[in-house]
Design a protein around this nucleic acid. Structure first.
Length: 201
DNA sequence: CTTACGATTGTCT
DNA sequence: GACAATCGTAAGC
């Protein structure tokens, strides 16, 4: 297992990087428990020029300052007062680009993840959706701004590469407030994978 | 200090 | 398909 190097995260083309993260493996080691899986769904958030980004227009606050760090750290925040969402900070320091991880195919620590989600048997919604996968991996705000080459949370390469015809680009989810930017096809996922989140239906 | 709201999910009908 | 849960964050006074 090989952790992705810092150079991987320095790419300032956040859309390209969101695609490259598909097929990589995200792991956490929390409370002595190893859990993780393969990333199958991402969304790109393009810093100051993206109306859907927390850093739109250069907004710099105690929360968003993490996004301005040099690529290769985590950005975790609370949504709706309930759900923790996990992002990968990318691009060189000062450029607040980030990639939201929205779907994960479980690999390690299945029983731990089931327990954290209060589920008794494996169903796709164990880790389909950003809030769901964060809970399954035990991610909360104490993991904000962590080094992604550390020993609490990291992303590894495992030789999985998807070809373009296996991938789909579509509009992002839950960002209607972003006006015209809500239509940008910056959500990427693996075609046909069961662990890609479905719009509420 | 006060207030409005969200990069969502689970439960109920 | 509809809606409640629930609180940190950011902006306004």
């Amino acid at each position: 297992m090989l952790k992705l190097p810092y150079s991987f995260y320095q790419n300032s083309n956040v859309n390209e990087l969101a695609v490259q993260l598909l097929g990589k493996q995200l792991f956490t080691f929390i409370d002595g428990q190893l859990t993780g899986g393969t990333i199958v769904e991402t969304e790109a958030y393009k810093g100051v020029e993206d109306k859907a980004s927390h850093a739109y227009g250069g907004r710099f606050t105690p929360r968003t300052q993490t996004m301005y760090q040099s690529g290769g750290v985590s950005y975790v925040y609370l949504c709706y007062g309930i759900h923790h969402l996990f992002n990968v900070v990318t691009a060189p320091q000062g450029t607040p680009h980030a990639v939201l991880i929205r779907g994960l195919e479980p690999l390690e620590g299945l029983s731990i993840m089931l327990e954290r989600r209060n589920m008794s048997m494996l169903k796709p919604n164990l880790t389909a959706g950003p809030g769901a996968l964060a809970k399954a991996l035990g991610i909360d705000r104490t993991l904000n701004a962590k080094d992604l080459l550390g020993d609490e949370i990291w992303i590894a390469e495992n030789g999985i590469y998807y070809t373009e015809d296996q991938l789909v680009a579509s509009p992002r989810v839950g960002v209607n407030y972003a006006g015209d930017h809500a239509l940008l096809p910056w959500r990427y996922y693996v075609k046909g994978n069961k662990y890609v989140s479905r719009p509420n239906s």
